[in-house]
């Protein structure tokens, strides 16, 4: 057990603790992205979307973890060949990716601390919806990190990695209505948003907040899509990743 803990702890140290300790500006950079959009949406909506935007910012940070994970893993694999050293060690792909995923959460701890404090002050909902939102966030995190890991094993240099990152950002955070309700998107374009799996997560979270009233059937479909997609990506990531080269 301590053996597994050591391996997870190693990942947390590499991309979170030591990175922030040696380069403190990284903390500021990690804070900027979710807060810039959060402030923008709150200002434009004159505060009407405050609760959705705060929850959206937390969800967005969880999802962005997968995108950042893809870049971090590619960087360590292609530029430093660190993954080669890990592959040939007693650390399995699962433990490595699990540790690296946790490290992304640790890296975002300052962001989470501020966002959760804002949520405590401005988002007032009962316990069950809170649990629903937490569950949606965990699913989104599992989905995005599995996808990030899978893609990182196929990238052979940083240029490719940045390209993948751009596509993932558009797919997972730009076209999906994370910071505002989907009804704000004009109808013909609304269907495009459903191409993004995070749209389903955002809808479930917004329904739990009470700012979106989804019929039960739609809610069930959203859960099915979210769970199925997460499971499929996780299975593909485990089966098809290029951990040991062929």
């Amino acid at each position: 057990m301590s053996n597994i803990f050591s391996k997870i702890y190693a990942s947390v140290l590499v991309t979170a603790v030591y990175a922030m300790k040696n380069y403190p500006t990284m903390v500021i950079s990690s804070l900027l992205t979710p807060f810039s959009l959060l402030i923008f949406v709150i200002l434009i909506s004159k505060g009407a979307l405050l609760d959705i935007a705060i929850i959206g910012a937390i969800l967005s940070t969880m999802i962005s973890s997968g995108i950042v994970l893809q870049i971090d893993l590619s960087h360590l694999k292609n530029d430093f060949k660190m993954q080669d050293m890990i592959v040939s060690s007693p650390t399995s792909a699962f433990i490595y990716i699990f540790g690296m995923s946790i490290s992304e959460l640790v890296y975002n701890l300052p962001t989470f601390a501020i966002l959760i404090s804002l949520a405590v002050f401005f988002v007032h909902i009962p316990l069950v919806p809170i649990l629903t939102i937490i569950l949606v966030m965990c699913m989104s995190f599992a989905f995005s990190t599995s996808l990030g890991f899978l893609i990182s094993t196929f990238s052979s240099d940083m240029m490719q990695s940045w390209t993948f990152s751009g596509i993932l950002t558009i797919l997972l955070t730009t076209i999906s209505p994370i910071y505002y309700p989907i009804t704000y998107i004009p109808l013909p374009f609304r269907y495009v948003a459903y191409l993004s799996p995070t749209t389903y997560a955002a809808e479930i979270a917004q329904n739990a907040l009470g700012s979106l009233k989804l019929p039960l059937s739609t809610l069930i479909i959203n859960w099915i899509v979210l769970i199925a997609l997460s499971a499929i990506i996780l299975v593909i990531a485990i089966k098809k990743n290029r951990w040991r080269e062929k």
Partner: peptide, 17 residues
């Protein structure tokens, strides 16, 4: 790049279990 030699060796040993 962003690690020191001490950190680099330490984390690798942790990965070794």
């Amino acid at each position: 790049n962003w690690l020191t030699p001490r950190q680099q060796i330490f984390i690798y040993l942790l990965y070794r279990g």
